[in-house]
Amino acid sequence: MRLRLAAITLAFIASGGIAAAQHHGHHDHGSHGALATDQRERVAFPPDLVEHTLADMRDHLLALQQINDALAAGEPDKAGQIAEQRLGMTSLRLHGAAEVARFMPQGMQEAGTAMHKAASRFAIEAQNAGVTGELRPALKALGETMAACVGCHAGYRLR
């Protein structure tokens, strides 16, 4: 499973998006035949941590939306601050990552770590963009952040 997750994540990053996830059979919205079987690895969390983790994931999505809004408004410094505080390595305590990680398979832990590290890289590159005006390195790091999210969601689900 860990190798499958790594392959999915790398394919997603290399292809630049959703097409890779669709290619691996995780999202076939065009199929009207039999429902596709969910092939993701089921991960058992205690019920209170399921709710906590799902709330954190919804906050991650909100943070990504706020980051995009800040970038669109020409505020890369603000985007970087949001990324570091809500998604980056600084956010690990906020989300209780140490407690949750105890229940994650190794590949899921690695995907989470990759996401947090990429978000911190984005925060640095967003600050750099505020000085240089060059957004490409920041956008690349933001794409890697989102690819880690997509890769993890493509490989795992909570039960």
Rank of each mutant, 00 (worst) to 15 (best):
A154F: 01
L87C: 06
I124H: 10
M146H: 04
G130N: 02
L139F: 11
A11N: 08
L49W: 05
A79M: 06
A114V: 00
H95N: 03
L158T: 09
D56T: 13
K117L: 11
A111H: 05
G17L: 07
H24C: 12
H29Y: 14
Q81R: 12
H24G: 00
R93W: 04
R93Y: 06
E125W: 00
L62S: 14
K117W: 05
A111P: 00
L35C: 06
D48E: 14
A148C: 06
L139M: 13
E51G: 06
L135N: 03
R93V: 13
Q66D: 13
D48S: 14
A73S: 13
A118T: 05
G133N: 03
T9L: 10
M146Q: 14
G155T: 07
E41V: 14
D48I: 05
Q65S: 15
A6G: 07
A126M: 04
G16W: 11
A141D: 05
E144M: 11
S91T: 05
L10V: 12
R93D: 12
P47M: 08
A126E: 01
G130H: 01
R4P: 00
D59C: 06
D38R: 07
L3E: 13
C149Y: 02
A141G: 01
L49R: 09
L142F: 13
R136Q: 15
A118I: 05
V43N: 02
R2L: 09
A6C: 05
Q106E: 15
T145Y: 06
A118Y: 00
E144S: 04
H116R: 12
E51H: 11
A11W: 05
M1T: 11
L139W: 06
G17A: 12
L54R: 14
Q22R: 15
G80S: 05
F45H: 07
A148D: 06
Q39H: 12
L139A: 03
L158A: 13
G112F: 07
L5W: 04
R40P: 03
T9Q: 10
A141H: 02
G17T: 10
R2F: 09
A6S: 10
I82F: 01
E51L: 15
G133L: 01
S91N: 01
A126D: 00
G155L: 03
R2P: 01
L142A: 06
T37P: 00
Q109K: 15
L61I: 10
P76D: 01
G16D: 11
N68S: 15
E41M: 14
D56F: 07
L35Q: 13
L5Y: 02
Q81N: 12
N68P: 01
I124C: 06
T132G: 06
A63Y: 00
A126R: 00
K140W: 10
L71D: 02
A63P: 10
